[in-house]
């Protein structure tokens, strides 16, 4: 029954998606027209999405980062138990996979950093780059489950980058007149070069570091979580 209801739901959603296919193309509203006409002139960013996410909707991005922080701390609070049951010893990975993972770790981190540093030029940005950095950490954890991340370093990175985000917003409030304002503090630079867009690249780098540290910490906690002793007794 539950599967039937679910399948009907999926069917309705699929028909909806199907009807959307011929509409693939630009749509115009008041705000999207404004952003497409003024976004590049206001911020000098080649990737307009970044201008919208970090400048026009910068406060929302701060909220998203906070939501991610809250969910990761909740998961950590629930999953970290020192008195849990010991889990089964994992089978070791083959030498080939271990060597490959070690060789690919540094290129993946560099590529993630490339994505969030170039967030205002190419697609992607803080969230995507942070996810790629976290996937590099994931690769090490997949090969060897018992590897531990340096927790102090993660905490410092995460706190400092979050603090930097809010501080940038406050500086914008003092200099430009509104929170996260992009006017006045940094030169906007030349369009489509690395040093352009004013504060936007700085904020996206901070977001990238923060998201990467948070997702890595989440994966670390998930991989090292142990069985719940209370739950086991209750079931038995």
């Amino acid at each position: 029954m539950k599967q039937l209801i679910g399948s009907v739901f999926v069917l309705v959603m699929g028909l909806f998606l199907w009807s959307l296919v011929p509409l693939l193309g630009p749509s115009a509203g008041y705000l999207s027209t404004y952003f497409t006409q003024h976004g590049v002139a206001d911020n000098h960013t080649a990737n307009l999405v970044t201008a919208v996410v970090v400048n026009y909707r910068g406060f929302d991005t701060l909220g998203e980062v906070l939501v991610l922080f809250a969910s990761v701390s909740g998961a950590t609070f629930v999953l970290r138990r020192r008195d849990g049951l010991p889990t089964a010893q994992p089978w070791p990975a083959s030498e080939f996979l271990a060597t490959g993972a070690r060789a690919l770790f540094a290129p993946l981190v560099v590529f993630g950093a490339y994505i969030f540093v170039h967030g205002h030029l190419t697609p992607g940005g803080g969230f995507q780059g942070g996810a790629v950095v976290a996937s590099a950490v994931l690769m090490l954890l997949l090969v060897n489950r018992d590897r531990h991340l340096p927790h102090g370093l993660m905490t410092w990175l995460e706190s400092l980058s979050g603090f930097g985000f809010v501080l940038t917003g406050l500086i914008g409030l003092a200099v430009g007149g509104s929170f996260l304002s992009n006017k006045g503090l940094m030169p906007l630079g030349e369009w489509n070069t690395l040093f352009s867009g004013g504060l936007i690249p700085i904020i996206y780098v901070l977001v990238g570091i923060k998201v990467g540290a948070e997702l890595s910490a989440l994966l670390d906690v998930m991989f090292h979580s142990t069985g719940d002793a209370d739950h086991q007794e209750g079931q038995a």
């Binding site: 089978w91 990975a93 083959s94 080939f96 996979l97 490959g100 690919l104």
Partner: peptide, 17 residues
């Protein structure tokens, strides 16, 4: 070229194990 042999190898090993 770098990654695909790794994933194929891991899949074959996983299937055996």
């Amino acid at each position: 070229i770098l990654t695909n042999p790794l994933s194929s190898h891991a899949l074959a090993r996983a299937a055996i194990r």
